[in-house]
Design a binder for these strands. Structure first.
Lengths: 226, 226
DNA sequence: CGTCTCCTTGACGTTCATCAAGTATTGTGG
DNA sequence: CCACAATACTTGATGAACGTCAAGGAGACG
């Protein structure tokens, strides 16, 4: 079962031991929380199916979205420091997850060096991802951000063996806007433009990418080049 | 010596074992690199004195600054996933660091649960810090970002027992601009305004904070409130 | 003491947010 | 299963915050 998350560096026997401590949760419905800000931290969550967004809420109770997580991803690592959640994680779709209870996980990690290294690696990757996100917010135009976003989601699905030119993506455009620090209006205008240019379409939760190269070019064009 | 970095959760005997694997480096001069993008990852670095900035370089060879690190901080954790640096770390001042060789560190961590937990905690904290940085870039006005930045640096010095109302900060305003996704011109204008209002001054690398409350208020004002 | 980099100050322009109003889509209860 | 309400998306007109460009002044380093 855990063939997706932690396992790239583990032996079969190690995977089996990991399986034993996994707490397989019932499916979450759209809108249900994995965790909320303020709750004590008890476990990491491995996503098996569906999609999750992680966000915080600012002073004016607007969401600030920090990431969308797909099957194979682990969420919750940001709470290990305080042993308390400062962020919220909510299902965007019917979602199934495995809980990895933290005390048991660390205990097992102390016995299985490969598992410990895997956790380090995942956390390190999360730091890098966060910095990339910052960079995109800071350096790219609205068009670049959107092209980048679509390609990134496609790439992550691809990396995990899913269809990546045409796929269901149950994310509100409003949430995309929020993740990329844009407004829904801007997102709408730019997706409209992309569709007119036959680069891609995103209607009714269905994404279709028609021209990867052109999107890539937009995403990378050296700032005001476009 | 290591009374600053990892040690909050360690016993004396554990600290001593950590001390044994520390590789105490000679001082770095301003402008010298701790590591550069592309180099293999060999060690984490604990900063003992001075200041370090971590950054990446974008397509147009402009720096994107991800953080400034002060004594007591650990840098390099983002490279654990790939075992290769994707970022650069450079001394902004005469800086002294300890290298914590990664293989030895992980080996020791396997024997000392407290140390392992400490590393998890630091990495988790780094994820949170990155998300806060994103949030500031995304949600705050130029004035708020600058007020926030000054208070943050002050707060970090304070947390580590240094002077925090008046202190040396060897960071170019250009680098502050880069970190906060602003231009040097904007930074100059706003610091000029803050000085006129007697909130703070920053001249010749010397920061003086005159009115914490007012800065706090600016940093937090609910967006366009100010 | 001179050069180079950094900082300052002003005038102007651009990107994207805001506001507003209308259309589509989704969800719900009868 | 349909009708209606609520939410999401679209499209246009306007505006503001900050970037860009330019030129002058101060500080730092050799």
């Amino acid at each position: 079962m855990q063939s997706i998350c932690f396992t790239s560096g583990l032996y079969q026997t190690e995977i089996e031991r990991l399986d034993q401590l996994v707490d397989r949760k019932p499916s979450l419905l759209k809108g249900e929380f994995l965790y909320q800000s303020g709750e004590p931290f008890t476990a990491l969550f491995a996503i098996r199916a569906g999609m999750v967004k992680v966000f915080s809420v600012n002073d004016l109770s607007q969401e600030v979205i920090h990431g969308f997580y797909v099957p194979g991803d682990i969420v919750g690592m940001e709470a290990m420091a305080c042993q308390r959640h400062e962020f919220c994680a909510v299902a965007l779709d019917t979602t199934s997850v495995c809980a990895l209870p933290y005390p048991q996980l660390t205990r097992l990690a102390m016995e299985v060096p490969n598992l410990n290294a895997q956790i380090f690696s995942l956390m390190s990757q999360e730091i890098v991802t966060g910095r990339l996100h910052s960079t995109i917010l800071a350096q790219k135009t609205a068009e670049q951000r959107l092209a980048d976003f679509v390609l990134m989601m496609s790439g992550r699905l691809r990396a995990r063996g899913y269809e990546y030119t045409q796929f269901r993506l149950n994310i509100l455009h409003r949430d995309v806007a929020c993740y990329l620090n844009l407004t829904p209006e801007t997102v709408s205008r730019i997706f409209g433009k992309f569709q007119k240019l036959q680069l891609m379409s995103w209607k009714k939760k269905e994404v279709l990418i028609q021209d990867f190269d052109a999107l890539q070019q937009i995403a990378q064009s050296s700032d005001q080049g476009n």
